[in-house]
């Protein structure tokens, strides 16, 4: 019997400090064993337990895309014991990854539709996975128009800056980056994400929006999408809860009868409406 609690050994091969405050870094891991790499089949929206023996585990969304073989990436904010230890690690360090866990963004449902991605702050990680997945040359034709609206409090807190610059040059993706407040060097858009969504006003015709961000952003963004005519089935988000096992056993991440770790983390607003309001 395979033991789902044993982490897969990986090596840190690249670390990118994403923000000026230096507390958000993207870690790239390579599998130590080829067979583990082949077995790790995932889709955007799934997560994994980052496992550091001696410290513990932390559930983090997978920020790389399965179209980028050979490695996994996770963008992690320094917050608790595990993530603080991770932030002190250097290239060459060995640790563990347990996954892939949870469901994913509903790729088959998204196929053939116009996709509106809305992200706020550092909750952009599995959305970045989805964007890279859809923008991959083998996949791009499966999706309609792709609109991305991404905001952070200030320019220094935008993550994936190189990728944002590369996407801005593409004509098959409409990128709208905004900051709450710019600085002297900022030439881009200023304004809160909900306001920008209203300005960009993506059509709800054959469209699905995928939203991830701080609760306050989501609260003010949802009415915009309702006004634009998006149904609750076509507004999709991802939940976070404290987790331990990640496989629906340890009993702490349930929302109603659903476990966020195994039945989620991705839910449509229509699905969330049916669950208890306890998250």
């Amino acid at each position: 019997m395979q033991n789902p609690y044993i982490p897969i050994p990986v090596e840190v091969i690249k670390i990118v400090t994403e923000v000026d405050t230096k507390d958000i870094k993207t870690f790239r891991f390579a599998f130590l064993k080829k067979e583990d790499e082949e077995a790790f089949r995932y889709l955007p929206g799934q997560f994994a337990e980052l496992s550091i023996f001696g410290k513990g585990e932390s559930p983090i969304g997978i920020a790389s895309s399965p179209t980028q073989p050979g490695y996994l990436e996770f963008t992690v904010q320094k917050a608790g014991v595990v993530t603080s230890t991770l932030h002190e690690m250097e290239v060459g360090a060995v640790m563990g990854v347990r996954g892939p866990l949870g469901n994913s963004w509903p790729i088959d449902y998204l196929a053939g539709k116009n996709i509106v991605i809305v992200g706020g702050g550092f909750a952009f990680t599995t959305l970045r996975s989805l964007i890279n997945y859809m923008m991959d040359e083998k996949n791009r034709s499966r999706f309609g128009k792709i609109t991305v609206i991404y905001g952070a409090r200030n320019p220094g807190l935008l993550i994936y800056k190189d990728e944002l610059a590369a996407w801005a040059k593409r004509d098959d993706l409409s990128l709208n980056v905004t900051v709450d407040k710019g600085d002297a060097d900022w030439k881009g858009r200023e304004g809160f994400v909900p306001t920008v969504c209203r300005e960009v006003a993506p059509s709800s015709e054959n469209a699905v929006t995928v939203i991830c961000g701080p609760p306050i952003m989501i609260r003010f963004t949802l009415p915009v999408f309702f006004d634009l005519g998006f149904s609750k089935e076509n507004i999709i988000t991802s939940l976070e809860m404290r987790m331990k096992c990640g496989i629906g056993k340890c009993g702490r991440c349930n929302v109603g009868e659903k476990y966020v770790c195994k039945d989620g983390p991705v839910f449509s607003l229509a699905e969330l409406d049916k669950l208890t309001k306890e998250y």
């Binding site: 096992c245 056993k249 340890c250």
Partner: peptide
């Protein structure tokens, strides 16, 4: 319900699980 935690002594450690309880504030 259970919790998973790590214990290290010197160069060796173990990962253990302990009963946990939904009655405790830290549970969630």
């Amino acid at each position: 319900c259970f919790d998973i935690s790590d214990e290290v002594k010197g160069n060796d450690g173990i990962r253990i699980r302990n009963w946990d309880s939904c009655m405790f504030p830290m549970f969630t």
